[in-house]
Design a protein around this nucleic acid. Structure first.
Lengths: 348, 348
DNA sequence: CTGAAAGCGCTTACAG
DNA sequence: CTGAAAGCGCTTACAG
């Protein structure tokens, strides 16, 4: 009845210098066989497989990914280029990516592109030098053709654009629909003068959300007033500044739709500073539904973007690509989460 | 006047299959020499060095870190185990780490331990299997002795504890001082009944901040009332719950000190829900000074923790350790940032 | 089904 | 100061 106490030791106590060759010796087979069993690369007789499994367990063998990477070309690591690692938006996406890559045996290698094409290119270079097996690009500014070029040698999945190319998968949230939903929500509550803080002007997300905003106005027969759309930078600070400008401009408005939550947070502060109450005086809608949107005062009505889910889907798509399959991911539709920052306009 | 247009191509356009051997051939030297020049491992005659540099530039050679890792034992990657990658707190620290590691030629490998010793251990195992050159541990629950064991084979820097061991460097923020500062600030404003939401009870940070809280009360001759201290989980949600419990308990209080900003955000919402105004009815102080603390309504008075700087320092300490030096980092002292969530008690 | 051998791209004693 | 050689720990044609 003696039990083999395999795996009961705290793993990093023993020097993990156990090599595949040691396993092979112990099992009485060749290294090639062990390798094949490890990789499921070929059919191996049951008895050999058994012995090898036993040897692996007894020795506590863990394959060395570095050697694997050199020999086989696979490093089991995936490069992820985000824009800013310490942003609530990217943090959520990275969390989702990590969540699916880890269990699949892959390690994410995160890098920040800082909204800068040159830096993104540098990130890609570093990642390629490190022989990652694939690259996940979260939005970013590098050109589509550059991305396609990368995809010639590595699978790539990219979010925030629509791009078709071999070995490349793109997936994005429906920003037009989201923008439309937010605006419709406000219109349904009786708002007629709805300001829009749009985020980085040449950013596709910003442009698409604006398109939704305009579509909703049009559908409701409301005029589009350029004086009501303010540029922003997707940051709290820029939302604050835009709102101040809006108020100072004396253009009448009863609601603000900010193209992301962070700008909405800034807008809320600007309104507070100018003694305008939310939602009594001004209704406010954000976009993203960051975790913190639930804890603003008042809690923010916003368009839910499944950011974490998007990260998960991107990672799954990468796994598909890696497996030689064609990914087919369905990104959930945006929906408005009504909280307490919006309300019907006063009848007057 | 023909210019050599080295490096002007978009780097990932050419297949980076240039090997060290190709460089050696072109320069007419042996691979060993190229390697030594790359690593500054030995003195090499100027003319050879020149030829090699030229060949490297012409070929656009980039050393393969994977091969380097296998052969030399250095992978130029650093494992970083945080607790939750999508948390404002860890995001900031990771940003700081990335900021200094990148330019030094190292790539961070981030993993999340999820506040769980077993998972942290798994992270460390994965990281070691990947042959990282060092490990940075952001707080975490694994035992001190386990960490020391790891340090026997790898340099480790750990935050949030005081630990002395060869090849290991620990650095932490002065939580006792921070807790004291926050409490003193409130006392100076006339508050006598100061509630404390403490965060995960057995977490060292929480315990230390509480120690500071008690020290300040004592120094001011104020009684310590256990009914005023509430457990929390460092999350917004837990801050909200704790505050609701506090209010329901009918214990009188005029101020709340939350052991981190996220709990303070939750507390603010709970107060709002119960129609208690900040700071008119209750003063509120947080801890950390997250970027978003500036945008709460009203903006949160808090104890500034240089979290991003802590990340930078941890990374620098790692670089020192890697260079065989003894790090000597001075972590900035906490200080209270007075904003608008606190005010003097009413004279009555 | 399974070995022996070569090779992935570097580094590092070991000898000059 | 500099080569030739062995080796890091795997994988993968190539032959049975």
């Amino acid at each position: 009845m003696n039990q083999v106490k395999v795996g009961s030791r705290r793993s990093f106590d023993h020097d993990s210098k156990v090599t595949l060759k040691m396993v092979a010796d112990r099992a009485g087979v060749s290294p090639s066989t062990v390798s094949r069993i490890l990789n499921g690369t070929a059919v191996v007789s049951d008895d050999k497989r058994e012995q090898v499994d036993k040897a692996i367990a007894e020795l506590g063998f863990v394959p060395n990914p570095v050697a694997r990477g050199l020999a086989g070309g696979r490093t089991l690591s995936i490069g992820v280029v985000a824009q800013v690692i310490d942003s609530p938006f990217y943090g959520a996406a990275l969390g989702g990516i990590e969540e699916v890559l880890g269990p699949a045996g892959y390690s994410p290698l995160f890098m920040s592109g800082h909204w800068n094409a040159a830096e993104e290119t540098r990130c890609i270079d570093v990642l390629r030098a490190r022989r990652v097996d694939g690259i996940i690009m979260l939005t970013g500014r590098v050109g589509d053709s550059a991305l396609k070029t990368v995809a010639r040698s590595l699978p790539v999945v990219v979010t925030g654009r629509h791009l078709k190319a071999p070995n490349l998968y793109s997936l994005s949230l429906d920003n037009v629909a989201g923008g439309r939903l937010a605006t419709e929500h406000l219109i349904a509550q009786g708002h007629r003068r709805i300001a829009f803080i749009m985020g980085v002007p040449n950013h596709p997300d910003a442009a698409e959300r604006q398109k939704g905003y305009r579509a909703a106005l049009e559908a409701a027969g409301l005029p589009f007033d350029p004086a009501l759309v303010l540029p922003g930078q997707f940051s709290e600070e820029s939302g604050l500044r835009a709102t101040e400008r809006l108020i100072d401009s004396r253009v009448p408005f009863s609601a603000i739709f900010a193209a992301n939550d962070q700008m909405a947070f800034g807008a809320a502060l600007a309104l507070y500073r100018r003694s305008l109450r939310v939602p009594d005086d001004v209704s406010l809608v954000g976009f993203d539904d960051l975790a913190s949107a639930l804890y603003t005062i008042p809690p923010l009505t916003t368009v839910r973007q499944p950011v974490r889910e998007l990260g998960r889907l991107a990672a799954r798509a990468m796994l598909e690509l890696l497996g030689g399959r064609r990914p087919q991911m369905a990104v959930p539709q945006p929906l408005v989460i009504e909280r307490e920052s919006t309300r019907r306009t006063h009848p007057g």
